[in-house]
Each structure stands twice: as structure tokens, then as C-alpha cells.
Amino acid sequence: MITAPALPVRFVLGPGWETFEESVRRSAADLRVRRNDVTVDVRLERCAAGRLRDTYPVSAHDVEVWIGDGCPDGVLPDLLRTLVDTVQRADADCRRVVHAVHVGELGRIAAAESAGFRYVVDVDLGQEELSLLAAEPGWVTSTDIDLDRVPGA
């Protein structure tokens, strides 16, 4: 089992967002975020310490972003983009930010994809089936297509 490092101490979202920390633990933080007249519950949790730990080959720094059902569809893509930027700025070693939605929630999948996430896999947690989407920084997704050269040689 991977030991998940502590989450960064504070998450400061971009301009216009107010953040209220509801509960902060070593590997998870429950936040309430607000912009204009929209308030949304958000959970950030290290995948290696949370419900997704056995669903894919997690990296110690991966973070799941969970957004409450009350988030309006028009706000979701911007909130997801903001959360990805915030997590990656706070933890430079984060390889992927994961957003899980119930299988078949096409509206939420489309919103996540418009925010830069890509569909990865469907998983069965026993009590629910989820589609996992991931947002990864360029240093993770960049590849050297020169297959005749050994990197670093």
C-alpha cells in the first residue's frame, strides 16, 4: 500500500472564488466554495488514501476532486478547471487529478472533458459504478516519439 503524503495545508482558488474549510485532515479536505450566488461542496482527497486507492495504479500524489450534486452544470467546468489549477499549483508532484462520476452521467462527463479531463476507465466499487476522468500536467503526458533513442543516453 502506498503511503499518501499530506495534502497541502491551504487551497486558495482563483479570483472570484471564496473558500471555506469545513474539515481538513491529513489526506482529505472538505471545502465549501462560493462564487457569486452559487455555493458548492467540494472534497479533495489523496487517491491512495481514499475510495479510489484500489481502482487503478495510483500515484502517491494523485488527488480526487469530488464536487457535490448541487453544482449547476454551467459552473462545473470552470470549477473543475480552477480546482485542477489549484491542486497542481499547490503540489508540483501531483501526476493526475481524478474526477469520478456515476457511469452514464453524460452531462458531468462532458463538463469534465470541457474542463480538460479525459475519460480513463469505468470502475466498480461494489456499491457504485464510476467513470474516472483524469487531468494531467504536460510533464506527465509529453512523450518522446524518437523510439530509436534511449532517453538520457
Rank of each mutant, 00 (worst) to 15 (best):
V98F: 07
C71R: 02
L79W: 04
D148I: 08
E18I: 06
A90W: 06
A48I: 04
E64F: 07
G116W: 06
D124T: 12
Y119L: 13
P57I: 09
R25C: 06
D62Q: 10
A90Q: 11
D85Q: 11
V123E: 06
R46N: 07
V42D: 00
V150P: 00
D146H: 13
H102C: 00
G116Q: 05
V87Y: 04
S27Q: 12
V87F: 11
L52R: 02
Y56S: 07
V65Q: 01
D93I: 02
P57C: 08
W66Q: 12
V58E: 01
D91W: 11
A60G: 05
V123Q: 07
D37I: 01
E105I: 01
G104L: 12
A134D: 02
V33P: 00
D37T: 05
S142Y: 04
V58F: 04
W66L: 11
G70C: 10
S131D: 07
G107H: 12
S131E: 07
R118P: 00
V101Q: 12
L76I: 03
T39M: 08
D73R: 14
R118T: 15
E22M: 11
A92E: 15
C94G: 07
V38H: 11
S27I: 01
G70L: 13
V75A: 10
Y56L: 15
D62P: 09
R26Y: 08
G126P: 05
R96W: 10
S114G: 05
R149Y: 12
W66A: 15
L147M: 11
G126W: 13
A115C: 08
V75Q: 04
Q88D: 09
A115N: 03
L31N: 03
D85V: 01
T55G: 08
Y119I: 06
E129C: 15
A49I: 05
L31M: 07
D30C: 10
A112V: 02
D122W: 06
A28S: 14
I109C: 11
D30I: 06
I109D: 05
D73Q: 14
L147T: 12
I109Q: 13
T39Y: 01
G126H: 10
V63N: 00
A110T: 09
A60S: 13
E128S: 14
A92T: 14
L125Q: 14
E22H: 10
D41F: 13
V58N: 03
V24E: 10
R46I: 06
T82K: 02
R89F: 13
A48N: 01
D41Y: 09
G138R: 07
A90Y: 08
V98G: 02
H102E: 15
V40A: 06
D93N: 15
G152S: 10
G116R: 05
E105D: 15
W139C: 03
Y56H: 15
G50I: 05
C47R: 00
S23L: 13
Q88N: 08
D62R: 07
Y119K: 11
L132A: 07
T39H: 03
R96N: 07
R35E: 10
T55W: 02
A110I: 01
L133K: 02
